[in-house]
Design a protein around this nucleic acid. Structure first.
Lengths: 195, 195
DNA sequence: TTTGATTTTGAGCGACTGTTCAAGTTAAAA
DNA sequence: TTTTAACTTGAACAGTCGCTCAAAATCAAA
C-alpha cells in the first residue's frame, strides 16, 4: 500500500455541491472549485476525472441529502403529510437564508442542461425520476394511512407536490415576500388534503 | 447624415433572445451570438454596449412578447380565465416543441442570476414584479366579471397562478410526460375556480 | 462626384477556461 | 533505513472568453 487519500471525499463533494448549487455548472470555474475545496487541479482530476465528474457526484450527493432530510422529518412526525409539510417549511422558510439558492439544485440542473449536455442532462432526468418515485412511495403510505383520499393515485399526489413545491421555491426566490411563505404553504397542504 | 443601420434591431434582439433563452446567459458565447444574429463584434458592441446589454434587451423583449401573447388570447376569449387557460395550454402543450426551453426565460434568469450579477439580477426581479402586476390587473378584472370569487384578492390569484404555471412548466421540462399536461392544466384551473 | 460622418469589419488583445503532467511529497511495506 | 507505489503540487498548454479598434465600406448631403 501507500499514502492515504488526504482529503475527505464526502466533505469535498459537499462543499463543491454548495458552490455548484449557487452558481450553476457553467458559471463555476475549476479555479473557484480549487479554492473552495482546497485541492490542486491534479488531485481534483485524479479523484473526479473532470469538472463534469465532480458536478455529477455533487448532484447525486444533493439528492441523497435531500432524501435523508425528508426521512428525518418523517421520523419526527406522526404522519407522512405532516413530515412533508415540516420539510417544505424548513426549506422555504427556515433554511432559506443559509441555502446557496432558494431553488432546488436538481431543478436548476434540469433548467441549465435541458437538451444540451448529453451526460449531465441524462443524469438530472434520472435523479428527478428517482426522486419522484421516492415521493410516490411516501404518498402511497399516506393514502394507506387514510391521511389522504384515494381520489388521486400516489403518483398524482407526488406530481402535484412537485409542481407546487417547485413553483413555491421559485416564487420565494426573490426578496420581500417572506411573510407570504407560511400562508402559501398552508394553502398548498389544504389543497393536497382536498384533492 | 450618413449610413443607415443595416440590421433590423427588433429582429436581432428576437434571435438573440431565443439563443439566450435556450442556453442561458453564461453558456451563450459572444461568438454564438455573432453567428446567430449575423453581426460582427464591432457592430454588436456599437449597438448594445456589451453581452450584458444585449441580454438585457432580449429579456425585456421576451416579457413584452409574453404579454402581447396573453393579450392575444384574451382578445379571442369570452372570459379572462378562459384566455389565461388558452395561453397556458398554448405554452405547455402546443408550442412546447418549437420553444427554446420549456421553462420561462424570466424564471431561468431569476435562477441564473440570483444574488450574483447585480445588474441582471435587479432586471429580472423588476420584470418579474411588473409581470405579476400585469397578471394582478387581469385577475382583478376576472373577479369584477364574477368569473372568480372574492375569497382571494387579485394579487393572491396572480401568485397562485404563477406558482402553478412555473411549477407545471418545470415539470413538463422532461420527456415522456406529455399526456399528463392537459389533465394537470385542467386541475390547475379547477383549483383556481374553487379557491 | 466629392465629401464626411456613420457603420461594418475582423484581426487580435489580455484574461480566463478546463485540463495535463513532470516533479515533489508522503507513508506503508520490505 | 530503504524502497516504492500512491498521492499532491503548480506551472503551463491549447483553446475560448468578452471585447477593442484601426481600417474599410457605406451612403446622405453638398
Amino acid at each position: 500500500m501507500a499514502n492515504k487519500v488526504k482529503f475527505e471525499r464526502e466533505n469535498v463533494i459537499r462543499v463543491a455541491s454548495q458552490l455548484f448549487w449557487e452558481k450553476g455548472f457553467t458559471a463555476t470555474s475549476t479555479r473557484d472549485l480549487q479554492e473552495a475545496i482546497n485541492m490542486r487541479p491534479g488531485s481534483i482530476y485524479a479523484a473526479f476525472g473532470s469538472k463534469e465528474g465532480l458536478y455529477s457526484e455533487s448532484l447525486k450527493d444533493y439528492t441523497v441529502q435531500m432524501k435523508s432530510q425528508i426521512d428525518g422529518f418523517l421520523a419526527n412526525s406522526d404522519s407522512v403529510v405532516g413530515g412533508l409539510r415540516a420539510f417544505v417549511e424548513n426549506v422555504i422558510i427556515k433554511t432559506k437564508d443559509c441555502s446557496p439558492s432558494a431553488i432546488c439544485m436538481l431543478v436548476k440542473a434540469n433548467s441549465e442542461f435541458a437538451e444540451k449536455d448529453a451526460s449531465l442532462y441524462e443524469l438530472s432526468l434520472d435523479l428527478s425520476a428517482k426522486f419522484e418515485a421516492y415521493l410516490t412511495t411516501l404518498f402511497a403510505q399516506a393514502i394507506k394511512n387514510n391521511e389522504l383520499s384515494s381520489n388521486l393515485t400516489a403518483l398524482e399526489y407526488a406530481q402535484f407536490f412537485q409542481v407546487q413545491f417547485t413553483g413555491l421555491r421559485g416564487y420565494f426566490n426573490r426578496p420581500g415576500v417572506e411573510q407570504l411563505a407560511q400562508p402559501m404553504i398552508n394553502q398548498m397542504f389544504d389543497l393536497i388534503k382536498k384533492l
